[in-house]
C-alpha cells in the first residue's frame, strides 16, 4: 500500500532514512530557494494563499452572488479586473507540484498510496486527513500564513509573529501526538 517503511534515522550514514536526502542538504537547498525569493521578489514562499485564491474562484463560478457578498472571498476576487487565479502564490504552487513530481519521478517515488501506520485503516486515515486539512486551513488563516508563509519565511526574517506561531505549531503537534499515535505507529 505504501512506500518503503521509514527506518529509524542514522541507520545509513550520510543519507537520510527511506532513501531521502540528508536533511541538512535538503535544508540548505530549501534555504537557498527562500533566499532567492527574498532577493528576486522581495517576498518569501507560501502555500495556503493559493488554496484561498482557488476556492474564491470556484465559489465565484458556482455562486457569484454569494462569493461577492462575502468579505473574505471578496478580498481574493478584487474588483474583477484580474482573474483570481492570476496570483503569485497560485503560480508558485503550480511550480511546487511540478518540482515535487520531478523529484519523485527521479527517485521512483511516484505511485498511488495512502500514507499511514500499520494499525490505521484506510478509511479512518482519509477521514483524519480531511479533518486535519480543515484544522490546518483554519489555523493558517488565523495566523495569516502556514508553515511556508509564516514559519519558514518569517522565521528567516526574524518576524515576531512568525516565531510565536512556529513555537505554537510544535506545541500543538506534540500535544495532539499521543491521541493520534494509532494513526502513525
Amino acid at each position: 500500500m505504501s512506500a518503503s517503511p521509514i527506518e529509524p534515522a542514522g541507520t545509513r550514514p550520510g543519507a537520510g532514512p527511506g532513501g531521502y536526502a540528508n536533511p541538512y542538504v535538503a535544508g540548505i537547498g530549501l534555504g537557498l530557494v527562500l533566499l532567492g525569493a527574498f532577493v528576486i521578489m522581495g517576498r518569501g514562499l507560501g502555500a495556503s494563499g493559493a488554496f484561498s485564491s482557488t476556492l474564491a474562484w470556484l465559489v465565484n463560478l458556482v455562486a457569484p452572488a454569494h462569493a461577492q457578498a462575502n468579505e473574505y472571498f471578496q478580498g481574493y476576487l478584487g474588483d474583477g479586473s484580474t482573474h483570481p487565479l492570476k496570483a503569485w502564490l497560485v503560480f508558485e504552487v503550480i511550480g511546487v507540484l511540478t518540482g515535487a513530481l520531478l523529484s519523485g519521478l527521479l527517485a521512483g517515488r511516484v505511485h498511488f498510496a495512502i500514507e499511514k501506520g500499520p494499525r490505521a485503516t484506510a478509511a479512518l486515515r482519509l477521514a483524519c486527513a480531511f479533518l486535519g486539512g480543515m484544522l490546518m486551513a483554519f489555523g493558517a488563516h488565523l495566523a495569516r500564513g502556514c508553515t511556508s508563509g509564516q514559519a519558514l519565511t518569517g522565521g528567516a526574517l526574524l518576524n515576531v509573529g512568525s516565531w510565536a506561531f512556529m513555537i505554537m505549531v510544535f506545541v500543538g503537534g506534540y500535544a495532539a501526538a499521543w491521541f493520534m499515535r494509532w494513526q502513525w505507529r
Partner: peptide
C-alpha cells in the same frame, strides 16, 4: 497567531501534512 499556530499544529498531526 498563537491560537492559529496551536490549531495548525494539531491539524498537522491529525492530517499528516501542511499546505
Amino acid at each position: 497567531q498563537i491560537v492559529g499556530g496551536l490549531v495548525l499544529g494539531v491539524g498537522f498531526v491529525v492530517g499528516g501534512y501542511c499546505p
